[in-house]
Design a protein around this nucleic acid. Structure first.
Length: 467
RNA sequence: GCCCUCAUCGUCUAGUGGUCUAGGACACCGGCCUUUCACGCCGGCGGCUGGGGUUCGAAUCCCCAUGAGGGCGCCA
């Protein structure tokens, strides 16, 4: 049985690198009919927060991932939060075994200097005495002599000389297990068969393997996937434009496109726009590129646009509604007329690549005051604009059989009759009707807006203070 | 400093000893379309990090150098 896990620490938002790792874990589990488990590694009592755990879970779900076992869904190997596992004393037995076999020892530190070790002891009672006197005491794992060798699925044979490692703290002075100890115990108890994680854990692996061996436990298979870097080749950070999944969500990237892009980063698949979930059968861990990848914001944006234009319009509207509600960007009155909304989105989606810009394009189509910016005001103030607009108004009122073609014909006719350049005339009309200089196609816009709204808007401009 | 990993256009990649004067996508540049902005279409620019080997033949195999990333926490 293949069992993989994603084990984030709830100390911040879900990072795009984490999301990609989780995606690959998930893909691997699903491809092989295995189990995907979510485990929360919150042994850092200072930095872990419930809010962070909540948002990580939400973002993972947003990415379309689901798990068979986890803190929210339970499972037979629970609990799935390390702090809970501490409460259940799940780390005590292996710890005592290491102590008993003298593969780990209590380290006693100077009272005023918790960095300076003054004594090692195997006696638990002696350690207790020191603790009572105010010393910090940790349990450290003894690194043995020799070499540690393992096979990494991506990188092949890995060999480490144990002398390059120092003894490692496995239980902190506050009693909590450290990462390197907790992962080993949990992965073993949860019967994880494949540890697929970020490359930042590569050199932790030999340390963990030594613990597995000291406990006489069977090793899982390991695979380390490369990290994601920013456009300048340094680790992806806020200064590059955002690193969290939430950042991209907030900026109007859609789940489908985001996951598509993450999958493309490193997955040697002969496709560009695709749904990773539908390509599970083509997924192989061995195909994942072994080199660090640079996150390309522009390509993600392009990909988002591709998905926006390809998806059924009602899905787009639904995604937009969820997005705007989550980020409190608009009210529900926008969506009262479903078919009108779909028509608006249909003409807007042709020209934008993310939900944020889609919102800018769609906004003027919905009821409310038009906000004319400087550029728009200048166009409305240009000579004879009033005259042109009243001609357009008359023409629009006279159109029979409202259609895009009829609208176009009527407007072009006015331009010819008034002997004004189409470019100029169309801009005046565009601004009068939508308040902006950049909009979807003019004729489509007027058609979608409908005669009533169009007429009203032109009349508002003609009667307004603008002119 | 020590240890580990990686190395094809600016970016993501195809390529696994001859079919490579290295293919695709994004970006960029130019053109077309055109009512704005885009989308779309067409075209262009652009790469095997360097040096040694192995071989009749190397982007592909080996070694060294260089560069980049990671690790060396009572963080994970």
């Amino acid at each position: 049985m293949i069992r993989v896990r994603f084990a984030p620490s709830p100390t911040g938002y879900l990072h795009v690198g984490g999301a990609r790792t989780a995606l690959f874990d998930w893909l691997f589990a699903r491809k092989n009919g295995g189990k995907f488990v979510l485990r929360i590694e919150d042994t850092d009592t200072q930095r872990s927060t419930k809010e962070s755990e909540r948002s990580i879970i939400e973002d993972l779900k947003w990415c379309g991932l689901d798990w068979d076992e986890g803190p929210d869904v339970g499972g037979e190997f629970g609990p799935y939060r390390q702090s809970d596992r501490v409460k259940f004393e799940m780390y005590d037995e292996p710890l005592n075994e290491l102590l008993k076999s003298k593969k780990a020892y209590h380290a006693i530190y100077e009272i005023d200097d918790p960095k300076k070790m003054i004594k090692k002891t195997y006696s638990g009672s002696e350690a207790k005495e020191y603790r009572k006197k105010g010393h910090s005491v940790t349990v450290n794992f003894k690194i043995s002599k020799g070499k540690t060798v393992f096979e990494d699925i991506a990188k092949g044979k890995m060999e480490f000389d144990n002398s390059t490692f120092d003894d490692l703290v496995i239980v902190k002075s506050n009693g909590y297990p450290t990462y390197n100890f907790a992962v080993v115990v949990d992965d073993h108890l949860m019967q994880i068969s494949h540890v697929v994680r970020g490359e930042d854990h590569l050199t932790n692996t030999p340390k963990q393997i030594m613990i597995y061996e000291a406990l006489g436990w069977e090793l899982p298979k390991f695979m380390h996937i490369p990290l994601i870097l920013g456009p300048d080749g340094t680790p992806l950070s806020k200064r590059h434009g955002g690193t969290s999944v939430d950042h991209f969500r907030a900026h109007g990237i859609m789940s489908k496109a985001f996951v598509n892009y993450l999958a493309l980063l490193g997955w040697g698949i002969e496709a560009e726009i695709f749904n990773p979930i539908k390509r599970i059968n083509d997924f192989r861990l061995e195909n994942i590129s072994p080199k660090p990848v640079i996150f390309d914001y522009a390509k993600l944006e392009w990909m988002n646009g591709q998905h926006m234009r390809k998806m059924p319009i009602e899905i787009l509207v639904k995604e937009f509604r969820e997005w705007s509600q989550k980020y409190s960007l608009s009210s529900l009155k926008w969506f009262e007329e479903a078919s009108y909304t779909e028509n608006v989105f249909e003409i807007c989606r042709q020209k934008v690549n993310d939900l944020m810009i889609l919102r800018d394009f769609a906004e003027p189509f919905f009821d409310g005051e038009l906000n004319f910016d400087e550029k728009a005001k200048n166009i409305l103030d240009s000579s004879h604009s009033q005259l042109y607009l009243s001609s357009a108004l008359t023409a629009i009122k006279d159109i029979h059989d409202w259609s895009v073609e009829k609208v176009e014909k009527a407007i072009r006719t006015v331009a010819e009759k008034e002997e004004i350049s189409k470019k100029k005339f169309f801009q005046i009309l565009r601004v009068a009707v939508l308040g902006k200089t950049v909009t979807p196609g003019l004729f489509e816009s007027i058609y979608v807006l409908g005669r009533e709204r169009t007429v009203l808007r032109i009349e508002n401009v003609l009667n307004g203070k603008e002119i």
